[in-house]
């Protein structure tokens, strides 16, 4: 189909594709090159390749930024939050898609309304609730907050379960299978692809989140990667190569997850947005 287009259009199309691709790849190359240079090299020749690439800079940044701790915190918080969200929201999505009850549509809209509330608005009241519960400066403060990030997941699971014929569950009911078993033995296995998508998308969101860890996780030993990386930027003012190395270390996990699960994320997001 592309080949049938006039040559001029094809050239223009390639020009556009390359321009955008370069604008995305170039900053990464710049970051990698900068990290591998000495500070003197960075200021004297910002474009050149590093004369003697210093890969040790990543180890330095890792150690000085205490990235082992940061990664453990971030991955632990993210894993727990994502698992909880998948469990609660698959259940809620299933209920909204397959059960008839009064107020079903209203409840669905209630769940969606949260998407329009700017998170900065609820900063102070949320903090107060967590403080009352005595959870500030614990992992639970952020995990419980992430548990409230249900709108997109419910939206997505509801659309997915709506695509599964109800006859399946009805047949099982006739056989005398309990509701719990219908949900866990029949529905959840069928929803595995949806769970994978929701899991990956939320992994990226939660891993990258900055605001909630900033206000809840003050103790240095609790910090997440994004938070630790910000603190690192401030305390290594003159060491551009270290700063950029830390930036790269913080972007690595979401990028790796994306490259590994590219198809699933893309298909998942498309389904989620298009089933509206």
């Amino acid at each position: 189909m592309f080949k049938s287009l006039p040559l001029a259009v094809r050239i223009a199309a390639y020009f556009l594709l390359l321009a955008l691709a370069v604008s995305i790849v170039l900053p990464f190359l710049w970051m990698i090159a900068t990290a591998l240079k000495t500070t003197a090299e960075i200021s004297q020749s910002p474009f050149s390749l590093p004369a003697a690439p210093n890969f040790g800079v990543f180890i330095d940044a890792w150690q000085q930024g205490n990235f082992t701790r940061l990664y453990l915190n971030s991955l632990g918080i993210t894993a727990l939050s994502v698992t909880g969200l998948i469990a609660f929201c698959s259940a809620a999505g299933y209920a909204l898609a397959h059960f008839q009850f009064r107020g079903r549509e209203a409840l669905f809209l209630y769940f969606l309304a949260g998407m329009m509330i700017p998170p900065q608005v609820i900063l102070v009241p949320s903090f107060k609730i967590m403080a009352t519960l005595g959870l500030v400066n614990t992992y639970w403060a952020v995990i419980l907050t992430y548990f409230a990030w249900v709108p997109f997941a419910i939206f997505f699971f509801r659309a997915y379960f709506a695509g599964i014929p109800r006859e399946l569950a009805e047949a099982a009911r006739v056989e005398g299978v309990s509701e719990w078993n219908i949900f866990t033995r029949i529905m959840l296995p069928l929803a595995k692809p949806a769970m994978a998508t929701v899991g990956i998308v939320y992994f990226i969101w939660i891993f990258n989140d900055f605001m909630w860890p900033l206000i809840y996780l003050n103790d240095q030993s609790l910090r997440t990667v994004t938070l630790g990386m910000m603190a690192f930027q401030g305390s290594h003012a003159a060491l551009m190569n270290l700063k950029v190395a830390a930036l790269l270390l913080a972007t690595a996990p979401p990028l790796i997850v994306f490259l590994l699960f590219r198809r699933q994320i893309q298909n998942g997001l498309i389904e989620g947005a298009l089933k509206a």
């Binding site: 900033l214 206000i215 996780l217 003050n218 103790d219 240095q220």
Partner: peptide, 10 residues
């Protein structure tokens, strides 16, 4: 110990 920017809010 609180992170500097968050301390005021906390």
């Amino acid at each position: 110990a609180f992170e500097n920017t968050a301390y005021e809010t906390a």
